[in-house]
Design a protein around this nucleic acid. Structure first.
Lengths: 270, 270
DNA sequence: AAATCCGGTTTATAATGATAAATAGGATGA
DNA sequence: TCATCCTATTTATCATTATAAACCGGATTT
């Protein structure tokens, strides 16, 4: 009759015993927080990390993989290779957020309900901070959108350029959280919106023209540093766009975002 | 509208050639999207996945690790074990988002700028959908917050409960995107806010009382199904809270969120 | 002299096999 | 009936080896 109490009884829900690899991941994350490691800083190489945490190759590999998926590091081979801390890319964050939203059936109206609230405030807040280059970029963007052929591929392209306008405004805003929220919405619209093939291309062209008109007015007001007018114009713009999207039967394609889609897209300027 | 997903385009310059493990991850994500696998569905076991993609154990392990970090699957041992699709938990998404914001220096004012815009709309939109249980929960939450001793630990606890009030409202809103945005903000406030130790506890208590007052009014208006009044009250509530937070010198602790923090957090009322 | 090629070195990436840990479900025993 | 043990199954970790990618520096070519 043996008396064995070594086995740790399962604490109901309280403290989950993590896997070794996950513990290593945590240690490294704490290291980043505590030593305030900035982008560009390098982690020790795999061999040394193995030694440091007394784990095997595959375990340290899983830990690094976890950090890589989280967008906190990149790993490269070669003599100067290994893990390097990076600033988490927006696209990666968008991808991970879309994993969450994938199961939620988000409609276009849902997105615009938030966009209507955020964009006017974002735009108004950006006005005092817009550089001359950014103001130029806004105006140049409008020219790019101007000629509207009815060819489907051009229509899609125009919608992309429309969103670039909003990204330029976002880039100038000093509030990183608001900026993030709006950039996220822009990214969702850019990548996930699909329109019914039924609607005639003329309707799409009308949508594009209406956008250009508003963008031109907004750019003008922005150049005049009139924050309140920009806010009002953007509010009207969002209101109208929301209506158009509804008429054109725009929908969000509920799918997971793949790494291969995240090709480095052209960043306006910042 | 069809969506072309090319597997491995041979564009040599632009696209980065992915690692084998990442390719497997993509294949599995495509599988989830295409076969519309819902939470609960199981992936084949490791051995079979190895066979399926013709890769070694370590490769398939890395791919599964990636999906696990993304919150798309959980993996368990034993018979009937293996990878199971799950709905990405909000907490996981919050963790990944915080990785992004970690490098951005978000201030309390930044968060509240967005919160001021979103919460009134969220609350108003929730009103028609609040169940009797949820209305009861709102009122019960207020009672919980009522007695305010000046003990620091109780003050923190009260702020947590305050946020629960807003979570209840969020839960009733039919817009998953707006809901998500507000829940995210609540989670940030819950986990990352730190107050200066300088400010006297009386000030904190005053803050708590002011919150309770507004919550009581909001709950009353919600029971009366008066959406517009709820919107107006919430707007005033946010305005005031924003001022209090500024006075109390509330700050966001810029750090990375660890898995071990994401233990099932205390749900005060159930 | 400048650019290019070409190996060697360093490092991650992938494959394989062996052992440990966790779990479910059935068998065992009071 | 109930708790315990047993065992088969599957992941988790470790260890080792082999392969591939990136970089460095010297040799070769232009």
């Amino acid at each position: 009759m043996t008396l064995e109490l070594e086995k740790m009884p399962k604490q109901p829900g309280r403290l989950k015993i993590q896997k070794r690899a996950d513990l290593v991941t945590e240690e490294i994350k704490q290291l980043i927080t505590q030593k305030n490691l900035r982008p560009g800083a390098k982690l020790p190489m795999e061999k040394e990390l193995q030694r440091l945490f007394s784990v095997s190759k595959s375990t340290i590999r899983e830990a690094l993989k976890s950090l890589e998926v989280q967008g906190l590091i990149t790993v490269s081979t070669g003599p100067t290779g290994g893990a390097t801390i990076i600033e988490v890319p927006l696209e990666r964050t968008f991808q991970l957020l879309q994993n969450y939203l994938f199961f939620k059936e988000v409609s276009m109206e849902d997105i615009y309900a938030a966009r209507r609230l955020l964009e006017p405030e974002l735009a108004a807040g950006s006005v005092p901070f817009l550089s001359d280059e950014q103001l130029d970029a806004l105006e140049h963007n409008i020219e790019t959108c101007q000629p509207t052929s009815h060819e489907p591929s051009r229509l899609v392209r125009q919608r992309q350029a429309d969103l670039d306008f909003h990204d330029i405004l976002a880039a100038a805003n000093p509030n990183p959280f608001l900026r993030f929220a709006c950039e996220l919405i822009n990214e969702m619209l850019r990548r996930l919106v699909v329109f019914s093939t039924q609607t005639p291309p003329e309707e799409h062209a009308k949508f594009g023209c209406a956008n250009v008109k508003f963008h031109a007015e907004i750019a003008k007001a922005a150049r005049a540093r009139d924050s309140e007018r920009v806010r009002a114009l953007m509010r009207a713009h969002m209101e109208e766009a929301s209506q158009y999207v509804k008429r054109l039967d725009g929908r969000l394609d509920g799918r997971l975002i793949l790494d291969s889609e995240m090709a480095p897209r052209l960043r306006p300027l910042s």
